[in-house]
């Protein structure tokens, strides 16, 4: 969540939502959360575990890239 929330402060286009998986089992099920932390960006790019800043940014950019690029 740390990187996500700093990115939210950096850009008006970014929002960051932390979700406590055990308190929201339906939401966690619909996003197939098997391990935490699980990060889902624009319901399009997802990964498990903490990533270094550069790779996290790469995931963000992939989530907004035009389809097929």
């Amino acid at each position: 969540m740390r990187l996500a929330q700093h990115m939210a402060v950096a850009s008006e286009r970014v929002t960051a939502t932390a979700i406590e998986a055990t308190e929201f089992p339906d939401l966690s099920r619909s996003y197939r959360v098997m391990a935490v932390p699980k990060i889902v960006i624009n319901d399009r790019v997802e990964f498990e575990g903490a990533l270094p800043e550069a790779q996290f940014l790469d995931a963000v950019l992939r989530a907004v890239a035009p389809a097929g690029s």
Partner: peptide, 29 residues
């Protein structure tokens, strides 16, 4: 502060975003 602790390269990339980005982070206690 409104001042994120990110590298200049990350900040520059984010400044160029042309679409909205919604990040969900699932965790447990």
């Amino acid at each position: 502060s409104g001042e994120p602790q990110l590298t200049e390269a990350t900040k520059a990339s984010l400044a160029g975003l042309t679409g909205d980005v919604h990040i969900k982070v699932f965790s447990t206690p």
